[in-house]
């Protein structure tokens, strides 16, 4: 008894806390929090903290607070403005082509025919391989020395000399768009396929009885009913195209020739890890983030405006 009284106050507190913890009943809601906790901690450590830290870096120089001067400095740099323009061209070019091929793909995949599963497997393969492999493959096919594209074009007498598609400043951005749309169209294709599968069949039967052609049905039934799915899919792909352009740029053109195919994310990488200028790299990365949010937000806005009408 006497011993117990001599326990130090801090120890008493600890013991008290342990007893208190044991008394907390594990209610359902607390248990759910406990299950979410590991994911939350990982997310805080490797998602939220780096994000805030990047924002912090982008308004500092060394340990000195400099406000928006990093942003002013990059927005006054020719190559950043070029990358800004390139990102827009790249994203709209790639997503537009992806949308056309993706829609065609979705229509094919939703038709009932023998070998449909094989076509569906073939449809996701471009998406499944590493992006750098896609980049290297297109570089190989478009190569001016013995590349298959040049060989075929020469044989068909469409060109007189091999064209260095990847290294030529007139074509470099196009090769990037062609390669990226090939790599990424499956995402749109399958999202649209999911939408197509939800459409009520009766509508088509009714339209057919009324004598509508397939083309008419596509424009007057399929497209209007798929509007929501289309907007969501385009929003996702646009944001992805901004955010994940690095791999295809790096493996196909390395931003070249010069900086003509440099996009924001590849430029951010160049500033941060080639020039080791973390603050400017951070500012360019934030610019890329804002760009993705702005483009994605536009689709979201259109979606909600469409929903209200």
């Amino acid at each position: 008894m006497a011993r117990k009284q001599r326990l130090s106050p801090s120890l008493c507190k600890t013991v008290g806390a342990v007893v208190a913890i044991r008394k907390i009943r594990l209610t359902d809601e607390r248990f759910y929090w406990l299950l979410v906790l590991p994911s939350l901690l990982i997310f805080l450590g490797f998602g939220v903290y780096p994000f805030i830290s990047t924002l912090y870096l982008s308004i500092h120089s060394g340990s000195q607070f400099v406000g928006f001067s990093n942003y002013r400095s990059i927005l006054g740099t020719q190559v950043v403005l070029l990358a800004l323009k390139n990102t827009v061209i790249f994203v709209f070019g790639s997503v537009a082509i992806e949308f056309i091929i993706g829609f065609l793909s979705a229509l094919i995949m939703s038709a009932a025919f023998r070998g449909r599963t094989a076509v569906r497997i073939a449809s996701f393969l471009p998406w499944a391989i590493p992006i750098v492999v896609a980049g290297i493959t297109f570089k190989f096919m478009l190569n001016d020395v013995g590349g298959i594209v040049n060989t075929l074009l020469l044989k068909m007498h469409l060109i007189d000399f091999p064209v260095a598609w990847v290294a030529d400043k007139r074509y470099a951005m196009w090769t990037l768009i062609v390669a990226d749309s090939w790599k990424s169209f499956p995402i749109l294709a399958f999202l649209l396929l999911a939408g197509l599968q939800q459409l009520p069949r009766e509508l088509y039967e009714a339209a057919r009885i009324d004598g509508a052609t397939s083309i008419k049905m596509f424009f007057f039934i399929t497209l209007p009913l798929l509007k929501r799915v289309i907007f969501v899919a385009l929003m996702i792909r646009t944001m992805q195209a901004v955010a994940y352009a690095f791999d295809i740029v790096y493996s196909l053109t390395k931003g070249g020739p010069g900086d003509l195919t440099q996009v924001l994310v590849s430029l951010a990488q160049k500033y941060s890890f080639q020039f080791m200028h973390f603050e400017l790299g951070a500012a360019v990365a934030v610019l890329a983030l804002l760009m993705g949010l702005a483009l994605g937000g536009t689709f979201l806005f259109l979606l909600f405006r469409g929903a209200r009408e």
Binding site: T54, Q240, A243, A268, Q269, G281, A282, A285, L289, G292
Partner: peptide
């Protein structure tokens, strides 16, 4: 849906 480059330096 945000660029990995936004997190890379930290």
């Amino acid at each position: 849906l945000t660029p990995p480059q936004t997190y890379a330096v930290p």
